[in-house]
């Protein structure tokens, strides 16, 4: 078995926070042990402040751990930071690595120089990324004049210019519209298929996890509380699916066995029923509804990441 691309052993980081006049210690990450093999695609999820970004910053050598150890791409992140930077590409959704006052093209060429790419390799890789991320139309535009969607595509291209083995994306789709999200996900899937890149992404977006990740890690208060597939996660917490029915006529709140009535809209024309897929099925619930009232349309909503996370957290007593 080959060496894992990420391996941490009881990794932890504390921050000192000023709280009025006193200073107190906040544990951002604690006792985190995980292993990611090369070629995997992992979603790293959790609420705000759960320690996701801190973990990423320790894995890339930006933050120095308080406890424990990490190895990324077989290197020690802090001691070998500069060597590691050649193996890893990171996109921070909230930060830019382009030069604000220069054009996208100039930013790319500086990054290529920083990573020591040969002119031939620079040209080939830039062309590839420009075409696949559709960056061409604004290559000559100053970064500060780009729209958010354009800038994110340029950011991703910038992070991948040196063909890193490991790509870490911290909230890559934050603020993007549906179409831009879709394009970005398609690109990441294609990139992974073409170069066998390892992906690690943090996100609040269920679609990102569903489309991109075959493994989910869930953190709560700095600790790893789940490691498995998304389906497995939903099952563990008994996440409910929701049947939404549009009815032919206004109806009082439906009481159906094995479901929970979540709410009615338009005077009872649309009703939302939650059910646990372990106990009943969408078909059975629908049949029970149809017995009482005519159904004109329906939709089934899957549990979203927020919901699953909330359930895990409440099960853990918070």
């Amino acid at each position: 078995m080959s060496e894992p691309i990420i391996e941490t052993d009881a990794l932890g980081r504390d921050f000192s926070v000023r709280d009025g006049l006193r200073r107190r210690t906040v544990v951002a990450v604690d006792d985190l042990s995980l292993r990611v093999e090369a070629g995997e695609s992992v979603g790293y999820i959790g609420a705000n402040g759960a320690g996701k970004s801190t973990t990423i910053k320790m894995l890339t050598g930006i933050l120095v751990p308080t406890r424990g150890a990490a190895r990324t791409c077989g290197l020690r992140p802090v001691a070998d930071r500069r060597r590691l930077a050649r193996e890893v590409g990171v996109v921070f959704g909230q930060r830019s690595q382009l030069w604000w006052d220069l054009s996208v093209r100039e930013s790319f060429s500086i990054l290529a120089a920083i990573h020591g790419l040969s002119p031939e390799r620079e040209r080939r890789r830039t062309d590839e990324l420009v075409e696949r991320l559709e960056v061409g139309e604004f290559l000559g535009t100053a970064v500060r004049q780009l729209s958010l969607g354009q800038r994110m595509r340029a950011e991703v291209a910038a992070a991948l210019l040196h063909s890193p083995r490991l790509v870490i994306l911290d909230e890559p789709t934050i603020g993007l519209d549906v179409l831009s999200k879709q394009r970005l996900r398609e690109f990441l899937l294609a990139e992974r298929a073409a170069h066998d890149t390892t992906l690690l992404l943090t996100t609040h977006d269920m679609g990102d996890v569903e489309r991109l990740c075959d493994r989910v890690l869930l953190v709560d208060r700095g600790r790893l509380v789940f490691d498995g597939t998304l389906t497995g996660l939903s099952r563990t917490v008994g996440a409910q699916r929701v049947l939404v029915v549009d009815l032919a006529e206004p109806t009082p709140d439906l009481a159906i066995a094995d479901t929970e009535h979540l709410g009615s809209e338009a005077g009872g024309l649309r009703q939302r029923l939650a059910f646990d897929p372990e106990h009943t099925t969408a078909a059975r619930v629908l049949a029970a509804v149809t017995e009482r009232v005519e159904v004109r349309d329906l939709a089934v909503e899957e549990p979203d990441v927020e919901d699953v996370v909330r359930r895990v957290y409440s099960a853990r007593g918070r």
């Binding site: 050598g61 990171v90 830019s96």
Partner: peptide, 12 residues
């Protein structure tokens, strides 16, 4: 906080 980007580069 954008100093993180500086530390992400293979540079001194």
């Amino acid at each position: 906080g954008s100093v993180v980007v500086d530390f992400l580069r293979p540079l001194d």
